[in-house]
Design a protein around this nucleic acid. Sequence first.
DNA 1: ATGCACCCTGTAGCAACTACAGGGTCAAGC
DNA 2: GCTTGACCCTGTAGTTGCTACAGGGTGCAT
Lengths: 136, 136
Amino acid sequence: MKIGELSRATGTNIETIRYYERIGLLPAPDRTAANYRSYGDAHRSRLSFVRHSRELGFTIDEIRSLLDLSDDPARDCGEADRIATRHLEQVEEKIAQLTLLRDELTRIVGRCRGGVAADCRVIEALGDHRHCENAH
Amino acid sequence: MKIGELSRATGTNIETIRYYERIGLLPAPDRTAANYRSYGDAHRSRLSFVRHSRELGFTIDEIRSLLDLSDDPARDCGEADRIATRHLEQVEEKIAQLTLLRDELTRIVGRCRGGVAADCRVIEALGDHRHCENAH
DNA sequence: ATGCACCCTGTAGCAACTACAGGGTCAAGC
DNA sequence: GCTTGACCCTGTAGTTGCTACAGGGTGCAT
Ligand SMILES: [Zn+2]
Ligand SMILES: [Zn+2]
Ligand SMILES: [Zn+2]
Ligand SMILES: [Zn+2]
């Protein structure tokens, strides 16, 4: 499989595939006589793992650890679960943060009654956190 | 006011203040004889506006537009409200996205029963989107 | 032989900072 | 008068996870 096929098979940008190779996330594949990268099924499923994990929000470093684990099938899976659990907690924290933000923005946006910038309550609220009702 | 005081007064990293000046978000202040930056109240309130807007998630470019508006008090405030409304919509979209993610991660994390990596359902789920129940 | 799709390397750009390195300034204390 | 320490300066490079070229080579069809 050439890089363009792998790209289509996994929905990954070609430049991204080369980037993953450069940072050591994907192993360097064999090359054809013309120096083209030549991939097999193992590459494709590894890349799918990476892309799916990225879509779920894992960082490259977390994915590196997860790949190390799945490369060594006899190891205890506790670490995978710890990584996933910690990531879940971070997502929950981010949701909580954004929810506060949303509430504050809703209040701010709702205050505008039109008119000139000098009197705009939106601009006023942005300039002074004391108009806010919660922390952020 | 020297840069350290401005930093303490607004809770902004010194390097960040210099960065904002470099990208033209804050005007270059006067200098003392020793070439130290010397700030006044106008700088402080402009920086507070910037920091508060950043805490609310606005991008630097959006803040640039908002500052342009508040520099010109006779202008209609419609643009400020459009910027804030659009930002609110983006925050809501992000929350919706993260909520899907959280649900999927909760399911994935809940599947682990311990054991070796070869049998781990977490690693299996990360490798194959077909185990997922929603899009992401 | 010429067009086109595809591949290669290497470098630079994005957002919004943050972290030095390598220097200058200034007031206090001995 | 000399050192110590806190503060300030410029300029550059690093962070994360890509993405976008520039400038070239390869392979196949017309
Ligand atoms: Zn308004
Ligand atoms: Zn606020
Ligand atoms: Zn497990
Ligand atoms: Zn999935």
